[in-house]
Amino acid sequence: MTAIPAEPDQEERLQAAFDATIARRDRIEPRDWMPDAYRSTLVRQIAQHAHSEIIGMQPEGDWISRAPSLRRKAILLAKVQDEAGHGLYLYAACETLGVSRAELTDLLLAGRQKYSSIFNYPTLSYADVGTIGWLVDGAAICNQVPLCRTSYGPYGRAMIRICKEESFHQRQGYELLMTMMRGTDEQRAMVQESVDRFWWPVLMMFGPPDAQSPNSERSMAWGIKRNSNDELRQKFVDMTVPQAKALGVTLPDPDLRWNAERGAHDFGEPDWAEFAAVIRGEGPCNAQRVAHRRAAHEEGAWVREAATAFARRSAGEGGR
């Protein structure tokens, strides 16, 4: 390392060391120097991801009480429990950047941080549990697998653990739909209706088209993001088409067809006006999801306080 006397130069030197770490695709760790914008971008992205896991417990969790077999009830409860765990890992990764879980929860409840728009759509039948596993978790996996190699160490390590569990989530969803497709006509219709309802919102999960995605370029340069929105969306469509065929459902897009020239599927454009509305808070369930989370948080306050008081008292009695 070259000795550099003055303050501003030291800042430059730190920036250079940071840039070099990114350039050789090495990881940034919590105690490393990092640009403020890198830190704030990470906090925003990891928090949004954590909130998505926690809010995402609701649409499926709503069906635990109504799961139609004991086996499905156990699988669904274990899955939704996993999501609580994923949220917990991600909040912890965010805490390495100096923001507490309580602060992040406040930001979520105040509407100042977002979560995935998909969870602002309702779940209306048990087939939705399968569709969420297959398509929503499938899309999430497309987004998340590259994040295992993200430049921020704690985030990448959380993602490795999460991806490992997510692949089983996708499996259980697909397996549920396959089983239902072997059932009655009513069940097959239920599956198709569910896929019809979720297909477009799932495509929106990858975010706006690259041309309209303001933060993407910098995030990619920093190695926080590894692929563009459109790349991931294309990848998801190409991966899903044969799965839909094997399942025996149609995807509700008249423009969906194989393009031999591109070696990829062409597909229609999601309704970006609807996407924008849901992001603005006008989705079918935005208010409901946040209210549910707020109620749990506020109704739990006296419990958290009691445990803190008890711990303090025990420590005072010579516990710690």
């Binding site: 919590p30 390590r157 692949s167």
Partner: peptide, 30 residues
């Protein structure tokens, strides 16, 4: 600190929230 020679290692590096986390990388990264 990760680089002890680094004179400018931020003072905030000692703050509690900068804790080590998720140090297990499974052998079979999926």
């Amino acid at each position: 600190s990760p680089d002890e020679k680094d004179p400018l290692f931020a003072p905030s590096g000692d703050k509690v929230y900068r804790h080590p986390t998720f140090y297990d990388i499974p052998d079979d990264v999926p």
